[in-house]
Design a binder for these strands. Structure first.
Lengths: 233, 233
DNA sequence: CCAAAAGTGTTCTACTTACACCCATGG
DNA sequence: CCATGGGTGTAAGTAGAACACTTTTGG
């Protein structure tokens, strides 16, 4: 119970006069490569944290939506289009950027590895992909926290949604799909049980095509029935 | 694959010069009353949307964290302390506020109903609690969207965490707890199965006390073992 | 014919669901 | 003694876990 009148500690400032923070978006771009979940990092070319790695981002323009700002980063900086995109979290500690108050609204994107092509980037930016489980020592700002938070989100969402779709090409084999789960969850999965479950969920349709590779039996190719994210369980 | 160089559509502005949006926090304060999940609404005393209901919020100050801003709203405007608080989502469409660009970082709070006391509020603010399933016709801004989004979050989190804790007093009966689930999920639950499950999860400890009310057998009082949110399943 | 990944069923166990009666209390 | 919500067990069905061999291909 509250028995004292609570007084505001400061006057409420009028809308136009209140001092505004800078607002940025940052985007975790995840992809599966060499049996690892990787994330795209860029090297900072200016202070603060010059020379250290960070996740791509930009200050938002006053007349673009949050998603527009994220897509601007994806296309201009990484050359990507049409990826799965989801808002992750907003980080707003007062001291997270030494230049002043910057609130960062973070997103994550999931991209099939073969869609990533660093050959046409704006020059003078160093880009690489880092294993989520073996990040560089010193990441700029609070970006290590952000990556770990994003990884957890992806991990948990795998279990009740078709989010794996974002990491796969349109057509894929059941082994490709199982690999996504094994890499991200970090454990081996029984092939028969996995296939039984996928089949029960009724999310995929066979394309009728086969994928041939190596000296072994070719695998049937599937695609997701729905273009939308589907939740199950 | 990307075969053309992607050019930025505008020049990258230096950090200090870029035009900044206003940033607010808004908080959904949920509580359980009369077998309904309710949310606190305040009446707007100024344009835009003067006279319409909205969820409490404030522009953030340049030197306070997001959580500090939310707690400021909770204490100054609603007289609440020590509630369960979680960031919900950030809404940033360019046209969501007619005054100009305002990005809203939303949180939700869960409060035991008996902790709510409107008698000591700053005057000249009209406050009420509305059933989440029967909201007023016209809510200000995009606040209807925000409430519905928050309700979904609470509903899904009930199923794999001890979030129900936030809506209950420290000591409660198993029927109280079951009611939280029934009201939010919108379905009757079998008493024996519910108790068996709760017992398996091993989240509660009996206080040894009894709660007497009405002309029937008194109910044993329990409390959560952990003060932290616990995830299960 | 050899190596390598694809593909396929059954049994056992654990959890979920459905269901009904006695208990303690106040009036 | 009546009305009210508190408190308890069992049986059936369902979903998940463990487990091994045959098939198809390329070299």
């Amino acid at each position: 119970m509250n028995t004292n009148i609570v007084k505001p500690e400061r006057e409420v400032l009028p809308f136009e006069n209140i001092k505004r923070p800078a607002v940025s978006v940052n985007v975790l771009i995840f992809s599966l490569n060499k049996d690892k979940l990787q994330v795209i990092l860029t090297e900072r070319t200016a202070e603060p944290f010059k020379g250290q790695w960070n996740i791509p981002g930009a200050l938002i323009y006053i007349d673009e939506s949050l998603e527009e700002a994220v897509k601007r980063v994806l296309t201009e900086r990484i050359g990507l289009k049409e990826v799965y995109l989801e808002q992750l979290y907003t980080f707003g500690d007062t001291n997270r950027d030494p230049r002043g108050r910057v609130i960062s609204i973070t997103y994550f994107a999931l991209v099939p590895f073969k869609d990533i092509d660093f050959s046409n980037l704006l020059q003078d930016v160093n880009v690489k992909m880092a294993d989520v489980k073996h990040l560089p020592e010193q990441l700029a700002f609070d970006h290590e926290t952000i990556i770990k938070y994003g990884f957890e989100r992806v991990k948990s969402k795998l279990e009740y949604s078709t989010i794996a779709r974002g990491l796969l090409p349109k057509k894929f084999t059941l082994s490709n799909l199982q690999k996504v789960y094994e890499v991200i969850l970090g454990e081996k999965i029984d092939k028969r049980n996995f296939r039984k479950r996928i089949s029960t969920l009724d999310l995929l349709k066979p394309t009728g095509e086969k994928f041939r590779e190596g000296n072994h039996r070719p695998a049937a190719l599937y695609e997701f029935k729905s273009n939308e994210l589907v939740f199950f369980d």
